[in-house]
Design a protein around this nucleic acid. Sequence first.
RNA 1: GCAUCGAUGGUCUAGUGGUAUGACUUUGGCCUUCCAAGCCAAUAGCCCGGGUUCAAUUCCCGGUCGAUGCACCA
Length: 581
Amino acid sequence: MYCKTMAETSDIYEKVMEVARRRGFVWPSSEIYGSIAGFIDYGPLGAMMKRNIENLWRSFYVFQEGYYEIECPTVGNEAIFVASGHVKEFADKMVQCPHCGEYLRADHVAAENGIENAGTLSSGALQAVLCELPCPACKEHLGEAGVFAFNLMFETTIGPGSQRKGYLRPETAQGIFTDFPRLLRFYRDKLPFGAVQIGKSYRNEISPRQGMIRLREFSQAEAEIFVHPDEKDHPAFHRYADYAAPLLTIARQIDNQEPAGITMRAAVDEGLIANEYVAYYIALTHQILTAIGVDPAKLRFRQHLTDERAHYAADCWDAEVFSGRFGWVEIVGIADRTNYDLRSHAGHSGTSMTVFVPYDEPKRVMKRRIVADMGVLGPRFRGRAKAVADALAASDPGEGGARITLDGEEIFIPADLYQVREEEVEIRGEEVMPHVIEPSYGIDRMIYVALEHSYAEEEVDGEMRKVLRLPPAISPVQAAVFPLMNRDGLDAIAQTIAERLTRCRILAQYDDSGAIGRRYRRQDEIGTPFAVTVDYDTLEDNTVTVRDRDSMEQVRIPVERLPEVLSALISGAITFHELRA
RNA sequence: GCAUCGAUGGUCUAGUGGUAUGACUUUGGCCUUCCAAGCCAAUAGCCCGGGUUCAAUUCCCGGUCGAUGCACCA
C-alpha cells in the first residue's frame, strides 16, 4: 500500500532528524503540552550551530561588506505593514463552502470558472461572482458564502484596552526600510550603503508540513543595500568577477536545460543578470552556502520567471539547494527591488526617503520662474491667495494669462497679475530615491541543508559510522578531548587541556566515558571535527594525538602547540593533510 | 483546511481487552594501551482528552503531532 519510493526519499530526512532530535540539535517546541506544527526549539547543539552560521554570515555581510547590523522589534504597528503592502497583499482571499465546509481560494474558484483577472478582483466583486459558482469539492452552489481574507501575518494588539493593532513582522526588512532616514544620516548621506538584520519573523502558514523548511516562526538574515538607481556597479565587483556559479536563467528554464556555470563578469556582460550588485551577491551567496557545507553539486541559482517575480522587481534569483527529501528548496532570495519599498514608505509616512546627490560641478540652468503679484492676488483671493500663487508657480502660462485648477475650480489669472522671470539658477545636485538590492537568507533552511548534506553513513570494520561532516566553523563543538584510559593521571591531563582550549575560545568537550572508539563515534555523530587523545606517550614526551573526523587519521603534536594548531585547522588556515605532511 | 494512514522507554521496535518484548543508547561498577569489544547492575515507555467496559496501551469519538494525496506556498 505504501509507496516505496517515497519511503526511500524520506530516508535521509528521517535519519538526519533522528540524529538532530536525539543529540540536541532540533526539538519539537513545547513538546510536553503537544507541539504545534511550524514551531521548533533549537537544542544546545542546534543553538550553537545556528549561532555559528549567523556569525559566518556576519563575517561576510558585516565585516567584508561593511553593512552594519541593526535590530528592530518583531512587533510592528499596523501602519508599517499597510505601507509595505502586507496587510493588503500578504493574504489569500478565501471562502468556505456552506455545504461541505471546504476552505477554498476564492480567486482560484473564480479563475477555474473562466472569470478573467480573478486575482485582481475585490472581495466584494469575488463574492458577487461566486454566488452562482459550484464548490469544486461538493458541486453545490457557493451562494452567500462570505469571502474573507486570510492574512498570513499574526495579529496582535498593543497596550491596554487593545486599541492599537499590531502585527508580528513577516520579514525583518521593513525595520530597515523604516529606519532609512536614520541610516542615511548614520552613513553620512552617501550612497551606496547597506544595513543588515538577523532575527525572527513570523508567518501564519496555512499548513506547514515540511519540518524545518516551512516554519511559522523562523530566522532570517536580510541585507538591504541602498544604491544609486543609475549606479548598479558594485565597487568591489572585481572580488567576484571571475567567480562562477551555476545559473538557471529564465531562458534555460523555458528550454528545460540544466544550469550553466558562468562567471559573474560574463553573466552581467551578457545581460543574464540585471547588474553587478545582483551578480555580486549571487557569488557571495554561493561562497557562504558552500562554506556552511552545502554540496556545490546540489546548489543552483534560479532566476524568477517574469510572471513569478514581483511587478516592481528588476531581477530576482533564488539560491536553491537540492534536498533528498524536499527537492530543490529556496534558501536565499536575491532581488533588485528597485525603489518600491522606499517609495511606498515615503508615500504613506510623508517622510522623505531620498538622498541628496551632489553633482560634480553645480549646474547652471536658466529657469523660468512665475512670480505672482501678491499685492493684487492677496486682496482678490484672500485666504486662497497662497494656494493660487503656488498653483501659478507650477503652471504653464499662455499668452494672455494662466489657467490654474484649485479645488477642482478652474481659474484664469490674467498676465498682469504675475511676472515671468528667466533666471539663472545653480543646481548643486538632485534628490535620488535609492534602489534596494536585497539578499534574504532563511537561516533555518540553511541549518537543515547543512545537516542533510553533511550527514554520512559509512561502514567501518563492519559497523555503521554516522558522521556529520560539518565544516569546522559551524560545528557546534570544535574539539573533543579524551584520556585514552581513565587512570594513571591521563584524565587529569586531558581535563587541563580541555580547559586550556576553552580559554582560547575553542569549544572543547571532555569525555572519559566508555571505550575510546565509542567516544570518537559520539563526536562523529555531532560533527566535532577534531579529537585530542591523551595517551601513555603523553606522559613521556608531552605530545597528544589529534584525530581528524573525516579521515579518522591521527597526527601527534606537542601539547603546547594545540591551541595554535586547532585554531588553524578550525579556521581553515591549514588542512589536516598539510598538518600530517 | 479536507481525505487516508500512523503514534509503544532517549532511539529503533515486538505485542496485547487484564500495565508490555528485544536491541541500541544513557548512568554506575568491573575490564580495557586508539575507533560503537566484553561482563554485572540500574534508569526509563503504551501521544492527549472523552466514551464503551469490572478492566482500554489495545475498541469507538474528538484533538495534537507526523507521513501521503488534494488544496495552499506573498
